[in-house]
Design a protein around this nucleic acid. Structure first.
Lengths: 223, 223, 223, 223
DNA sequence: CATGAATGAGGCTTCATTCAT
DNA sequence: AATGAATGAAGCCTCATTCAT
């Protein structure tokens, strides 16, 4: 049980510390903003004292940066997930759309990341770039490609959505922003919203004659 | 008989001060955020010293609140403007959409107001409510009504857009958020974006047979 | 009605200003203390603005000094008043004692002057000296002399009160201090107190055999 | 098992800090008054910096309150001390009187406490109440009881002093106030003063025939 | 490693004082 | 003479950071 054992519960605890601090930092920074968050708030949330934070991170600014990097990490598998979509194109589009809502609206982490990027963008300009590179661009690239493929194989009509895939994502972003603004105070039903969103997409993507059958809550054009 | 008439230059100066300070406060608060902005920064921008700010506003927090109220004021004519739209429904929709871009994207004030609401919403929860009441809700109500009227008179097809008018606005919000994130670094052409946005709307709103002919300024008959 | 007339109501007002300001300064300084009183408080009490105070007094400190001098002025006639006392010695003593209560307890000005001397003595050491010179010393000198005369003519027994006349005054000072501490919250009856005080004095001053008759509420040994 | 045991010098230091700060606060507040004292003055007196004061006390006002409470604590044993007086009544009275001088005049702490109560009473009204409850009232109650007992057993003549024991204390208060006003500039001999004070009391308390013999430590039969 | 006392720069706010009107 | 806008020094308090234990 010498202090160098490196496998006791103490050591495990130690190994987990940096992560715990990053998580706590996320909670505090996203709730209060960078400037208004005190290092001690973060420490208290972890259950340690100020000094301990400085054992692992050399400054508040570095901690913020690391926290943002840590938050962005899961974004990395965005590309992988999108690539794994299969099936008929309309189904893929729906799956993709639902994935976007999953990330932007349901996942608090991603949502708050958006808040931090908007709020602290002035002080940390690289944040926006990373967020874009690792999240928005992959999503848009994937959406654009998917649509172009669908058009190429005749499943979809030609549409400007292929060149401007942001249009496809924007309703989810609106919900994300609404969520950031009102937390849970203004929650109209998300399923209805997504259904309408999909309906809008089908009217742009599907040939006229097919559209007749699209209805129901989530518009499953797979028939 | 304006408050600046018939007075010496001193009095004119004094009458203008609160507005000058509010404008400067807007610039600083939106650039740095509430907590990171120093009252002295605001004062220096106006060309006065700290103390002068306190002649007109009793605290930094009150100044922030007044600044937000001042910013929100122009939102009030949102409703009026929307009501003034005329002409055939598709043209009205287009005018409405362009108005939304005008406000959310081209107008820096409204854009930065959005940033402040997102960034400081945690500390000033009423901000979101006012922004919503005076801006988002009027826009959505107007859009919904316009669409329902168009549907009622046969100009538009039935569409979930009528119930979820946020979908109509969301692309503009996305551009606004992009603008907040990248300032001017990521500027893809806005006209192309709006054109695609409108195209998307026409495919949802117009009967199939009419869509071929939709062009005007925006819709490109790309067939 | 030229501005140099010096007798219009305006001019009268002007002439009264310094005094009004001194009175207001007294109220504020004695209520809040020197450091905690704002020049503007004083101005507002007079019904003018800060600037006006500086027309008449060059600084807050000077104003305080002038106010104290103004307050001390009525003390000057202390000597005169005491000298005017007449009649049998016991009556003179009683009149004197009542005069002391009048000044120290009933007269708010003198009482608050005491507070100011105690409170601000550290910053304005000459205050105590003036207060002493113009008030306490005259009182004590007069009391001592009166007693010594009474002893000399056989009206009073020899007593250390003659050399330490402060003893004679101290009960009134106690009431003054109590008044300063509790304002009006702790008001036991003053007449009873004075009666007891006089009784105490008679037991020291009068021969044993005369004391037998001293009773009644205010112990009138003049029978 | 005192709180300073078994710890490093750091811990000892820390345990002593609040007390050191309270002492320093007493010196500064009583010398300058509440408003004119800077927290930094107090800190410098302890040999630390501003910030350290705030480690122990959350605000200047709280520090002032704690300092007053700390100062008042020793007053608590006033009652106990008085009860312990023994011996013949005149000796008890003398011991009591000497105790009052000890506290009010010789003990700088109690004296300055009086200054603070008078000076800051307007801003902190409870101060006067505590001072009265824990100091003046016990003294007066004890004196009154002692005298009434002496009267009951025939040692003292009936006297209004029994009902108004403040009269017994007031000369000491006068000396205290003089001390507050002049510090050490006006120091007439205290022993002479106390002797005269006691003499005055004996003339009220003792039967005529006994008074001739009153001397003991104090009364000088200078006839 | 962890602690938390101590620091001191920095920000908010007050207010005595000045001065143009 | 009176005003009150403007100033800026100064005080309260916070908090990122350091470091001895």
């Amino acid at each position: 049980m010498s202090p160098t054992d490196g496998k006791g519960p103490r050591a495990q605890r130690k190994a987990a510390r940096p992560m715990e601090i990053l998580e706590a930092a996320f909670e505090e920074f996203s709730a209060q903003g960078y400037a208004a968050t005190r290092v001690e708030d973060i420490a208290r949330r972890v259950g340690v004292t100020k000094g301990t934070v400085y054992v692992y991170f050399e400054s508040k600014e570095v901690l913020f940066g690391e926290m943002m990097r840590h938050l962005s990490t899961p974004l990395a598998d965005t590309r992988a997930h999108i690539r794994s979509l299969e099936g008929p194109y309309p189904q893929r589009i729906e799956a993709f759309v639902r994935y976007v809502y999953q990330r932007l609206v349901a996942d608090r982490k991603t949502r708050e990341l958006l808040r931090l990027v908007v709020a602290e963008g002035a002080r940390f300009p690289h944040l926006a770039d990373r967020q874009d590179e690792e999240f928005m661009q992959p999503l848009c690239d994937a959406a654009g490609e998917m649509i172009r493929e669908g058009v190429a194989c005749g499943a979809f009509r030609p549409t400007p959505l292929a060149e401007i895939p942001e249009l496809l994502i924007s309703p989810a972003l609106l919900r994300a922003v609404e969520h950031l603004m009102f937390d849970d105070r203004r929650s109209t039903d998300l399923e209805d919203f997504i259904a309408a969103h999909l309906e809008l997409l089908w009217s742009a993507l599907l040939p006229c004659e097919e559209r007749a059958g699209t209805n129901g809550r989530t518009a499953r054009p797979d028939a």
